[in-house]
Computed example of a mutant assay.
Amino acid sequence: MSTKPSASIVVLIGPPGSGKTTIGRLLAERLGVGFRDTDTDVEAVAGKPVSDIFVEDGEARFRELEHQAVRTALAEHDGILSLGGGAVLNEETQALLDGHHVVYLQVGLSDAVQRVGLGSARPLLVLNPRSQLKKLMEERRPVYERLAVATVVTDKREPAELADEIVRGLPA
């Protein structure tokens, strides 16, 4: 029996609106494995939506729960894993991603805004969502690029096409 922890087949990272959940579900279906989203895990632990965690408990508490969710998922889940857009900002999380097949879903501002919507309930995009999203994307891009073993540009492309591209890029 192996003592090596299971490793997710693919870990999807990227900003809000990049398609992590949609593409992740398609990938899981194509590969016949499970799909897991760490934001959903955080909500289950906290017993409330991410937006409520931010408002009631603060961003620091959310980031703590998020890191715990990522650590647990990386250790337990052997399918497709989608991380919240800011999860990669935690240095410990970055270290945990080493050795995993991390795919950065890169999206342009225009497509991200269309997907997220300007009336978004996303806590970090409440005031001036377009400007906030642009700032988040610019700040996080270097981290996404450094952690990824593959980058897939999602602009003006269908989720099925993107899932197929990711499958073709998986190691044999």
Results as ranks from 00 to 15, higher is better:
residue 149 V to M: 04
residue 73 A to V: 03
residue 119 G to T: 09
residue 35 F to A: 00
residue 81 L to K: 01
residue 75 A to R: 06
residue 71 R to M: 10
residue 52 D to K: 13
residue 99 G to W: 04
residue 70 V to I: 12
residue 59 E to G: 03
residue 68 Q to H: 14
residue 78 D to F: 07
residue 56 E to T: 09
residue 134 K to F: 02
residue 157 R to S: 00
residue 53 I to F: 12
residue 115 R to W: 08
residue 56 E to Y: 11
residue 129 P to W: 13
residue 22 T to M: 05
residue 58 G to C: 09
residue 53 I to Y: 13
residue 94 Q to M: 12
residue 147 L to G: 01
residue 48 K to S: 08
residue 60 A to K: 08
residue 28 A to P: 14
residue 31 L to G: 05
residue 22 T to H: 01
residue 113 V to M: 11
residue 154 T to W: 05
residue 28 A to Y: 09
residue 41 D to E: 15
residue 37 D to E: 07
residue 63 R to W: 10
residue 82 S to W: 08
residue 152 V to D: 03
residue 151 T to D: 01
residue 19 G to E: 07
residue 151 T to S: 14
residue 146 R to D: 02
residue 107 V to S: 15
residue 67 H to C: 03
residue 56 E to D: 10
residue 139 E to H: 14
residue 117 G to R: 08
residue 22 T to R: 06
residue 88 V to K: 07
residue 20 K to G: 09
residue 81 L to P: 00
residue 79 G to H: 02
residue 84 G to T: 07
residue 17 G to V: 04
residue 72 T to A: 15
residue 53 I to K: 08
residue 28 A to I: 06
residue 49 P to Q: 09
residue 77 H to V: 04
residue 77 H to K: 03
residue 159 P to H: 09
residue 44 A to Q: 08
residue 50 V to Q: 07
residue 106 Q to M: 07
residue 42 V to K: 06
residue 146 R to Q: 12
residue 27 L to V: 06
residue 145 E to W: 01
residue 29 E to H: 14
residue 125 L to M: 14
residue 69 A to N: 08
residue 113 V to T: 04
residue 116 V to A: 06
residue 80 I to D: 11
residue 63 R to G: 02
residue 159 P to S: 05
residue 59 E to R: 05
residue 22 T to Q: 03
residue 22 T to G: 03
residue 132 Q to F: 02
residue 66 E to N: 05
residue 116 V to I: 13
residue 66 E to M: 07
residue 30 R to G: 01
residue 142 P to D: 02
residue 135 K to Y: 08
residue 128 N to A: 14
residue 38 T to Q: 05
residue 60 A to M: 05
residue 96 L to V: 10
residue 20 K to S: 06
residue 73 A to F: 01
residue 79 G to Y: 09
residue 75 A to C: 01
residue 128 N to S: 14
residue 35 F to W: 13
residue 143 V to L: 15
residue 149 V to E: 09
residue 66 E to C: 00
residue 26 L to V: 05
residue 101 H to W: 06
residue 34 G to S: 11
residue 21 T to N: 11
residue 113 V to P: 07
residue 58 G to E: 13
residue 153 V to G: 03
residue 17 G to W: 11
residue 159 P to F: 12
residue 98 D to F: 04
residue 92 E to A: 13
residue 40 T to F: 13
residue 133 L to H: 12
residue 55 V to H: 14
residue 137 M to H: 04
residue 18 S to G: 13
residue 146 R to G: 09
residue 57 D to P: 00
residue 142 P to S: 04
residue 129 P to G: 12
residue 160 A to I: 01
residue 90 N to P: 06
residue 33 V to L: 06
residue 144 Y to N: 12
residue 157 R to C: 00
residue 135 K to F: 08
residue 152 V to N: 00
residue 106 Q to H: 14
residue 44 A to T: 10
residue 61 R to G: 02
residue 64 E to M: 06
residue 70 V to L: 00
residue 110 S to T: 15
residue 47 G to N: 09
residue 32 G to E: 00
residue 35 F to V: 02
residue 25 R to W: 11
residue 70 V to Q: 10
residue 53 I to G: 01
residue 31 L to R: 07
residue 37 D to Y: 09
residue 103 V to R: 14
residue 45 V to K: 14
residue 156 K to C: 02
residue 51 S to D: 12
residue 130 R to W: 07
residue 83 L to Y: 04
residue 69 A to V: 06
residue 91 E to R: 11
residue 75 A to G: 05
residue 125 L to C: 06
residue 87 A to E: 12
residue 67 H to S: 14
residue 41 D to H: 03
residue 18 S to R: 01
residue 102 V to L: 09
residue 156 K to T: 07
residue 95 A to L: 11
residue 82 S to F: 13
